[in-house]
């Protein structure tokens, strides 16, 4: 057996990389005009904010609830729309079910592109087009969901058992038939599971879309924040927290059931 020279536990390159990162951090912080002492100066104000957070305005919850349900509707409706429109795309973006290589590359690019735009930006774009309100939030969520579900589901399609696909091809079935009877049945539970997972992401995202006027609880939140009504803010955050918890619990329960 060849003698291996004992290596130092953490290679020197790591120390070099660490120093380099430190340098970049300092230069960036200087450029961003970050002064850490401001954190200490601002601390009393933030502590007062937290103290006010501890006394949520419970009576305000009556107003919060309808907006909360709107947020839920936006998230569910948008996710459903994204899941629905993921349909031809997710098979086009999988190597084994794409009709032609160029379709595959184009679909992959489209799905990657859709995911680069943050939901809040999409929502702001839709607010300009369809106006203030839930509809713009729903459309933004739909586009974003299409990107995530399409990407995850197409990767799943690429790992399915090729047997049924080849069997149908051998008897001369056209591509749509092969997809419907050989590919889809193998991955439909996964598709539903990805959709529920996307819903979990969207329920969080939907709470902030109101910041740009896209409906839901976010608009109440901005108003309360701007008028410095922190007990109201606390009530809203509390309600959001429980809704997110509830939806996540239900969704992960469902996902365990499906798979």
């Amino acid at each position: 057996m060849a003698e291996e020279a004992p290596r130092i536990p953490i290679p020197w390159a790591w120390y070099g990389g660490g120093l380099l990162s430190l340098a970049v951090i300092f230069i960036s912080s200087w450029h961003l005009q970050i002064r850490p002492q401001e954190l200490l100066q601002g601390l009393p104000q933030m502590i007062r904010l937290f103290q006010e957070f501890l006394h949520p305005d419970v009576s305000y919850l009556k107003k919060v609830l309808p907006a909360l349900l709107d947020t839920l509707r936006m998230a569910i409706g948008g996710t459903a729309m994204g899941a629905f429109f993921s349909f031809p795309l997710l098979f086009w973006a999988a190597k084994n079910t794409a009709p032609a290589p160029w379709v595959y590359h184009l679909s992959r690019f489209l799905l990657n592109f859709l995911r680069t735009l943050p939901e809040l930006l999409l929502a702001a774009l839709f607010v300009a087009v369809v106006g203030l309100g839930m509809m713009s939030g729903l459309l933004a969520i739909a586009i974003f969901s299409l990107g995530i579900i399409g990407k995850l589901a197409s990767e799943k399609v690429e790992t399915i058992d090729p047997g049924p696909l080849e069997a149908l091809q051998a008897v001369g079935a056209p591509l749509p038939v092969r997809i419907l009877w050989a590919a889809w049945p193998q991955m439909s539970p996964d598709w539903l599971s990805y959709t529920l997972y996307t819903l979990e992401i969207n329920i969080r995202a939907a709470t902030i879309l109101g910041l740009v006027g896209a409906g839901g609880i976010g608009s109440l939140l901005t108003t309360a924040m701007k008028s410095l009504a922190y007990p109201k803010v606390a009530a809203i955050l509390l309600a959001v927290f429980f809704m997110v918890l509830l939806v996540e619990g239900w969704s992960s329960f469902m996902r365990r059931r499906i798979l």
Binding site: L69, D70, L72, R73, M74, I76, G77, A80, V129, V130, G131, L132, G133, M134, M135, S136, L138, G215
Partner: peptide
């Protein structure tokens, strides 16, 4: 799903404007 879509408030802008 039905509950979500029924509760949607439709935007104030008309389709042509949009």
């Amino acid at each position: 799903l039905i509950w979500s879509f029924l509760g949607l408030s439709w935007p104030g802008k008309t389709l042509a404007v949009g």
